[in-house]
């Protein structure tokens, strides 16, 4: 049983690393985060219910650890001003096109998103979870996932493309 779960966690490692990279924007931090999550998960295997999805449970652990660390960093004053709308470096001139799709530009833009937006963006747009699956990981209603995701996508677009997105439209 426990060995079987271990194998399943190993199979999830590439996805967990990708998720953690989306959150942290740094490979080293991502691997530290995944390692911490694996250690925590293994020490609490008894809390995982076998009839639920292991990937959601693991993502939730990654999320929790990341938020804890993020809050810690913020308390130490390393918090990035989320409202500064400076374009990411390198986003002017003709290099934009080449650089646009690189990890670095996207990661730097993501750093400017509030953490709850970054989470939902990573779950849905990077990992490809459905809104409902993302809502389960984040333990929020689907409506919340959607509102955070619209804001995150618009903001990311603005930051990476360095131009305002089309006019926002609310619910009717």
């Amino acid at each position: 049983m426990s060995e079987d779960v271990r194998q399943q966690i190993i199979a999830l490692l590439p996805r967990l690393r990708r998720f953690a990279l989306g959150l942290t924007g740094s490979r080293d931090d991502a691997d530290d985060l995944v390692q911490a999550a694996c250690e925590r998960a293994l020490s609490r295997l008894h809390q995982w219910q076998p009839d639920t999805r292991l990937d959601s449970w693991m993502f939730r652990i990654v999320k929790t650890i990341w938020i804890d660390q993020w809050r810690t960093n913020r308390a130490r004053g390393e918090h990035v001003d989320l409202d500064s709308i400076e374009p990411p470096a390198g986003s002017n001139g003709r290099h934009v096109t080449e650089a646009r799709n690189t990890l670095e530009v996207v990661c730097r833009a993501m750093e400017r998103l509030p953490d709850e937006q970054r989470l939902v963006l990573t779950l849905v747009s990077v990992d490809g979870l459905s809104y409902e699956e993302a809502a389960a990981v984040l333990e929020v209603p689907v409506g919340t996932v959607m509102s955070r995701l619209t804001r995150a996508r618009r903001r990311l677009y603005e930051l990476v493309e360095n131009k305002p997105a089309t006019l926002a439209r609310g619910r009717n």
Partner: peptide, 23 residues
């Protein structure tokens, strides 16, 4: 924007220390 760049991670081998942590 989000799809391409992160997927590279999926194709990389998982670092040994992570495997060791799980094992």
């Amino acid at each position: 924007l989000m799809r391409g760049p992160f997927d590279e991670v999926l194709r990389e081998p998982v670092p040994a220390h992570l495997l060791a942590a799980v094992n």
